[in-house]
Design a binder for these strands. Structure first.
Length: 570
RNA sequence: UGGGGCGUCGUCAAGUGGUAAGACACCAGCCUUUGGAGCUGGCAUUCCCAGGUUCGAAUCCUGGCGCCCCAGCCA
């Protein structure tokens, strides 16, 4: 190496994880001139944030070390895979910010080559056709502590194997009647080496190859060989495949093809959610959520609809790092922190009252309307200002008033003065209640004209600042408040039953009578905002319509008031 | 009592023989026209345990203990 420009970071604070260290070493030693990775999703479901880790890693290291990352659909099981999934997967990867240029591949592109490889193995007496049933194969495999037994078909002649294998391909046999197996070692302590199945007979229409094939390769047989065909130098996968590595290498060695190498990293788990396709599919099928893109789902499409930014997800993935231990769970608070960090910098602030309480400002002229100046984003001067209408009747947040305020409650109460953000100081003079129910229906206040804009006219302090919306100008909208999908930190690993039992019954609360400032009237699907003092919200991309806006709460603001209250209750 | 992997703060995670990074969370305070943001400080005398080697060990050796993964013709 004449230079070390390929090192992604010279910052000593940014230590390389074990994968990047390996790559760096392979480049410096001259083992590889450049690196090639791949992301190999199976098109049988939607991508979730666990996949984002794999995507960021495989595409990320390729970028950092000036190599390439292919997108390869691992479509070896026609009974589970569909094109619609493939399309959604591509959309999600692009949304995250990665690109495979013209390198879109499919394991099914290699079926013919794989078949020839298999014939080669048969000719080397390293593979054979086995007539045992699935159950029998399981019995013959032995157990964790006992070796397996050789299949009675293990010693078939090469000619017979060749003939049978070809007839498997032509579709002569029924599903499950025979399989092609690698001839390795039925006594291996590694179960994966006990003559693993390479091909099974499946008469099903494949979403790309149609009815051309009646045999399909298994993961173990297809994956490593596909890697090798694409000259993948570093095949990154999750740690569940660790035990498969000897098999991965055995196939490559027997075939004498390009020696791709597999490296395993720990899969991502996140507290208060589940990250397994099988479980997510179940939530969808059982209609526990509205679909794969329900904003509560940890799928990329769900997170996107919820209002997450790709930047936040990528930052999160960077920060949790890469290691190779099993069973590590990132705190969802970390994810939410990365989200807020990004949203705080880039979201326009607006005022929206979620639980409206009417306030009449008695000393404010009846028909007067003022256009008050409001800062769009205190974190970003270039975001500019906007005008917000103010009038005699406004809405404030119901929880911003307490008739009998507890200690440290800085908001409105009888006789108390607070600031209306961007507007005036008001003092609560009178509380109007429903005679029957006792519910507070209206507040009467007076304002101090000298405090226009929210400035203190004489230096007097007000502890609280409230957001508000002019009643006459407000835009009514529906707002959905989302919370964690599960009530347990680890719903996937709970001895006390099924994970769906721990679904959070309050994961979605829909508010139908929210009052928003008028600038929001023409917000478009996907637009993100910070509702002042409330949190970050986005316009729902599916259900929102002009004139009937629907917002999703992406994540709340950090809320130290709620924290104070909770700690007092203890 | 088969094989593989892993044990460093509540969580994620650096550290590869020279005297425990960082992030999140948490706590205290400052500041504030968002109880937001920002800022300051605190937060592992100790690295699963026990021995050993060494001037010196989270890092090396020995022996324990604990947790996770593998018995699909799924990936």
């Amino acid at each position: 190496m004449t230079n070390n420009e390929q090192t992604p970071s010279s910052d000593p604070a940014t230590r390389l994880d074990f994968i990047r260290s390996q790559i760096k070493e392979d480049l410096e030693s001259g083992k590889h001139d450049s690196i090639q990775t791949r992301f190999p999703p199976e098109p049988n479901g939607y991508l979730h944030i666990g996949h984002a880790k794999a995507i960021c890693l495989s595409f990320g290291v390729a970028e950092e070390f000036k190599g390439q990352c292919n997108l390869r659909f691992d479509d070896t099981n026609p009974t589970k895979e569909e094109s619609r999934y493939a399309n959604a997967i591509m959309e999600d990867i692009r949304w995250l910010g990665f690109d495979w240029d013209d390198r879109l591949y499919h394991a099914s592109d290699y079926f013919e080559q794989l078949y020839e490889f298999a014939v080669k193995l048969i000719k080397k007496d390293k593979a054979y056709v086995c007539d045992l049933s699935a159950d029998e194969i399981r019995e013959y495999r032995g157990t964790l502590t006992e070796p397996g037994k050789d299949s009675p078909h293990r010693d078939r002649s090469i000619e017979e194997n060749l003939d049978l294998f070809e007839r498997m391909r032509t579709g002569e046999f029924e599903d499950g009647l025979r399989v092609l197996r690698a001839k390795i070692d039925m006594a291996s302590p590694n179960l994966n080496m006990r003559d693993p199945v390479m091909y099974r007979i499946v008469h099903a229409t494949h979403h790309r190859t149609g009815d051309k094939w009646s045999i399909y390769p298994t993961y173990d047989w297809a994956h490593g060989q596909s890697d090798s065909i694409e000259n993948i130098t570093h095949s990154l996968c999750d740690i569940g495949f660790e035990d498969h590595r000897p098999l991965y290498e055995w196939f490559i060695e027997q075939l004498g093809i390009f020696p791709s190498r597999q490296y395993e990293f720990s899969r991502l788990n996140i507290s208060y959610t589940v990250l397994s396709k099988r479980k997510l599919l179940r939530l969808v099928n059982e209609e526990q959520v509205s679909g794969w893109d329900d904003p509560r789902m940890p799928t990329l499409s769900g997170l996107r609809r919820r209002g997450y930014t790709p930047e936040a997800i990528r930052t999160f993935i960077d920060r949790i790092g890469v290691a190779r231990k099993r069973g590590s769970t990132a705190d969802i608070a970390m994810l939410e922190h990365c989200l807020r960090e990004d949203l705080n910098l880039h979201s326009k602030r607006v005022m929206a009252v979620l639980h409206p309480l009417k306030v009449v400002i008695d000393n404010y002229p009846e028909d007067q309307v003022e256009e008050l100046e409001a800062v769009n984003n205190p974190e970003d001067d270039s975001a500019g200002n906007r005008k917000v209408p103010f009038s005699r009747e406004i809405y404030i947040e119901r929880e911003d008033f307490r008739e009998d305020p507890p200690k440290k409650f800085f908001r409105l109460a009888p006789g108390r003065e607070v600031r209306l953000k961007h507007a005036y100081f008001i003092t609560c003079e009178r509380v109007v209640k429903d005679e029957q129910t006792g519910e507070i229906t209206e507040l009467h206040c007076t304002y101090d004209p000298a405090s226009r804009g929210g400035a203190s006219p004489d230096g007097r302090k007000v502890k609280g600042t409230l957001h508000w919306v002019s009643a006459a100008h407000a835009v009514r909208a529906k707002v959905r408040l989302y919370d964690h999908l599960f009530t347990k930190e680890d719903p996937e690993n709970n001895e006390s039953g099924d994970f769906v039992d721990h679904l959070n019954p309050d994961s979605l609360e829909t508010l139908t009578d929210c009052q928003l400032e008028p600038s929001l009237a023409d917000a478009a699907p996907g637009d993100r905002f910070q509702f002042l003092r409330n949190g970050y919200f986005c316009v729902d991309s599916v259900d929102s319509k002009p004139g009937a806006l629907v917002f999703n709460r992406t994540v709340g603001l950090r809320d130290s008031w709620t924290k104070i209250q909770k700690s007092k209750k203890k």
